[in-house]
């Protein structure tokens, strides 16, 4: 499928809502970040939502099926959570996370899973191009950033990841439940000790306001790619309450050590 047809198939459905809610959560706790994503996933009445968020404190998140023992960094990390999406571990430092929550029947998600990745990552690639980043899908054959036995997501590339300079710089994971989809995405803005040798935006964006600068570009790209308009809103009181309640388990010993 050509890039243009991948994009057009995400926006050609006339029944898919054209206005999405945008929730920004800067320096939010890991439990709140995870809890709010789950609350939105399990609420069939929630409007189409894009979240952009950063984490405080810096956090290591493990994938849902990932074995604790396969992530050496987990034992020494100050703050660790386990996600409900799959994939490898991510160090949420110098990084922007986004989540998209929609019904599975939405044009963005109704086709096989890999096509949804192509559509979303096409928007990421468009945003990156604003800063002169020549990003593309990684394709087969691996990347120079691949490392064995770290358990880190950015050290284990797949063909649908976003890469520049032959290194992985953005990746995604999904959870599908109850006819709805939660899509997580992570873009590395700077390097961290746990994720050496990966692609970052350090050489492309000034350090000052890097999160806000890239976030604005990402919004522009998604508005164009998905033919939507974003309305900034805060989560409702009920959503915030659900986020706090659901968020508790993400850092619990039982959940962290489920595998």
């Amino acid at each position: 499928m050509s890039r243009s047809s991948v994009l057009s198939s995400a926006r050609s459905d006339s029944a898919s809502p054209r206005t999405w809610r945008l929730i920004e959560s800067w320096d939010a706790s890991p439990e709140f970040n995870m809890g709010l994503d789950e609350a939105l996933l399990d609420d069939p009445g929630a409007p189409p939502t894009l979240r952009l968020y950063t984490w405080s404190p810096d956090t290591l998140s493990l994938g849902y099926f990932q074995k604790w023992a396969d992530v050496p960094a987990a034992a020494n990390a100050a703050t660790v959570v386990r996600r409900i999406t799959g994939g490898g571990a991510i160090h949420h430092q110098a990084e922007l996370t986004f989540s998209i929550v929609l019904p599975q029947t939405h044009a963005l998600f109704r086709d096989p899973v890999p096509l949804s990745y192509e559509r979303i990552h096409a928007a990421l690639i468009a945003a990156l191009s604003e800063f002169g980043v020549e990003a593309a899908l990684a394709g087969p054959g691996g990347l120079r950033s691949d490392r064995e036995q770290t358990g880190m997501c950015f050290h284990a590339s797949t063909p649908l990841d976003v890469a520049w300079g032959t290194r992985k710089g953005a990746g995604s994971a999904q959870r599908r439940r109850g006819g709805r989809v939660l899509h997580h995405g992570s873009i590395k803005l700077g390097s961290t000790p746990l994720e050496g040798e990966i692609a970052t935006l350090e050489e492309f964006l000034p350090a000052e306001n890097v999160v806000q600068t890239f976030a604005a570009a990402l919004l522009r790209a998604m508005e164009t790619s998905f033919a939507v308009r974003f309305e900034r809103q805060e989560p409702s009181a009920a959503e915030q309450s659900a986020a706090r309640r659901l968020g508790e388990r993400y850092s619990s010993a039982a959940f962290l050590h489920r595998r």
Partner: peptide, 14 residues
Amino acid sequence: ETFGEIESVKAVAD
């Protein structure tokens, strides 16, 4: 009731 989960390279499904 959800009785299990399955993961592909790119998604976890109930």
